[in-house]
């Protein structure tokens, strides 16, 4: 009964979060759902979108709704790792003694917006990505753990590619999802304009807190998944590897290298969260299919054949989906 109550609370929390986010973010339903999924699943998101589509506003709204401290890091080419993580500084105390004090960097928050992460140097990128992966920072001899839930939403600007440092594939793999934030429709634009004429500030209210998020994360782990669906997800990941005998024709023809085992883990973790978010108590094929694009699009490298055939990575993922059998 207690667990049933928790499940009902989960559903209510999701509904409340979405309602509050809608107050500040127009449209982008899929993005909002995916971000909620990633937060509950404990992953990070790479968001690609042109400037002004509401990336910062989105994270800020989540911060308010989830009652979690928010931090925005604007990445520039001259940003140093210590600018992200923090550094030790020497300070004179009240007695006049010189002491080493650790000044925390902007990374010390629950929700981080890492804006234009591809504009900073690989060194700074690595520092950022290490924190994303480990949820802790080591400065000198001291290791500082991040407070849970810890979520990073990194952005990439697809327009200004000159002078940028594209994330290497190995680093891209650390992101649970890559989401594409599209330009809003005319109706959505009109709604945005009308909303922001009144106030630019986010009006979302807090409805849950970090502890609730952690409870939801724990609850989602218990959602059952049958072997057939599990194997389907595993086959989907395996089928992105052209070097395997069993991979389909599309993989062999269009993929240079496929997704890592981390993608398989992300599939199952996120599928359980998604199932629960939709009011289901089991993982289905539909959950896996819905997560295929956000999980795989940044993990696959298509080859020249795909370019030649004018296929994008999205098209190749579609082919893989069609050619992977469900039992």
């Amino acid at each position: 009964m207690e667990d049933l109550e928790k499940v009902k609370q989960f559903s209510r929390a999701i509904s409340d979060i979405k309602n509050e986010i809608r107050k500040d973010v127009v449209g982008q339903e899929e993005i909002v759902d995916s971000v909620i999924t990633a937060i509950i699943a404990g992953g990070n998101v790479l968001l690609e979108g042109v400037p002004g589509v509401g990336k910062t506003r989105l994270v800020r709204s989540f911060s308010k709704t989830l009652s979690l401290p928010f931090s925005r890091i604007q990445f520039t080419p001259d940003l140093m790792p210590s600018d992200v993580t923090g550094t030790n500084v020497i300070e004179k105390d009240a007695e006049g003694k010189m002491n080493t004090v650790f000044r925390r960097g902007p990374i010390f928050a629950n929700l981080i917006l890492a804006d234009e992460i591809n504009r900073t140097t690989p060194k700074t990128q690595s520092a950022m990505l290490e924190v994303m992966q480990e949820h802790k920072v080591t400065v000198g001899d001291t290791t500082y753990a991040m407070e849970e839930p810890f979520f990073v939403l990194a952005t990439e600007n697809p327009i200004e590619q000159d002078g940028t440092y594209p994330l290497p594939e190995a680093q891209m793999d650390r992101f649970m999802f890559k989401l594409i934030m599209k330009f809003p429709s005319v109706e959505e634009l009109a709604a945005i304009v009308n909303m922001t004429q009144i106030t630019m500030a986010e009006t979302a209210n807090a409805v849950v807190d970090g502890a609730t998020i952690l409870e939801m994360r724990e609850l989602a782990k218990h959602v059952p998944i049958i072997d057939e669906v599990l194997n389907y997800a595993m086959n989907l990941v395996a089928n992105t590897h052209p070097e395997l005998e069993s991979s389909p024709e599309a993989a062999k023809k269009y993929i240079k290298y496929g997704a890592s085992p981390r993608a398989a883990q992300n599939f199952i973790t996120c599928a359980k969260v998604r199932a629960l978010m939709n009011g289901n108590y089991n993982v289905s094929y539909e959950d896996i299919d819905a997560l295929a694009y956000p999980i795989l699009r940044h993990r696959l490298k298509i080859n020249y054949n795909a370019v030649n055939d004018k296929l994008t990575v999205e098209d190749v993922i579609g082919l893989i989906l069609k050619q992977t059998k469900k039992k």
Binding site: H222, V223, P224, I226, E228, N280, N282, S284
Partner: peptide
Amino acid sequence: MHEKVQTLVAYSSSEDSMAVIQRADT
């Protein structure tokens, strides 16, 4: 049913709370 019944059968003997809730819902 989006694999609800298959899950019910696969987890028919599971005592996990989520499995119990899933069976009842199905």
